[in-house]
Amino acid sequence: MNTFIRSHLKQLESEAIYIMREVAAQFERPVLLFSGGKDSIVMVHLAYKAFYPAPIPFPLLHVDTGHNFAETLTFRDRLVEKIGARLIVRYVQDSINQGRVVEETGPYASRNALQTVTLLDALKEFKFEAAIGGARRDEEKARAKERFFSHRDAFGQWDPKNQRPEVWNLFNGKKQPKESFRVFPISNWTELDVWMYIKQEKIALPSLYFSHKRDIVKRDGVLLAFADGIVYPVENETVDNMVIRFRTIGDMTCTGAVESEASTIDDIIEEVASARITERGARADDKRSEAAMEERKRQGYF
């Protein structure tokens, strides 16, 4: 083995840890956004390693749409307890009750877009200056130009024309009061890197990621999990019991499953390596228009 060169996973890990530490050092009140998905579970793992043996010096924030999978919430609570992190939860339901947002109605209703308001309110409530997220550049075209340190104006909005150049590993986190940053330590990872890292580090994941039987509603080619009162069949749609797994985990109304027999990490890595559709391709929210992701990012979505 060449003792001068580390594996790509080691280098990606080291880069992510470096960025987490820069955030802790450059900002007074950072926060780690936790969605319950595998990327944010990896992020918590990286944060743990970045500050070991000290505790993670910032809290985790979870925006709960109220339409989460039960497995996600159970897993979240156990993880937080295990590593001794501080967790803050804010609910989209509260934003609805306060009249901050108006909920979509009907069978296609999704709370996905409403999360943005709840998130921005929570950032404001705690005066968080830097929100660390698990977004990756390979997920979607609009993210390919995203910075590690992404500057947001006083309204939490992203201006693609006004982003700071990032050279070498020098990250400029200086800002006016009220402005903020979104920081993406695993920008350079691909889905396959994430899975290989999960394997290497033996990171536990919610069972949703592995092959299981579930009642499914097929809608516009997307396989949604049946959930009473949230996702249910209309018109010609049916509920079928299928063998599936999830490649991403988010709000139930827009997280699509894939038919899969992959029941171990190795199975999944093999599947991902030969996959024919991107992770986000299984998400209903990106299909609305070609520039859908960019629009949502401008508004403050992650």
Partner: peptide, 28 residues
């Protein structure tokens, strides 16, 4: 595949550094 942002696609120019990823069994 590699022209990212909306404004750029309209003007048919890329105006910022974009990062892409691929891998072979040997290297990422």
């Amino acid at each position: 595949l590699t022209d990212g942002l909306k404004a750029e696609r309209e003007q048919k120019i890329t105006i910022d550094v974009a990062y892409r990823y691929f891998a072979t069994p040997k290297r990422k």
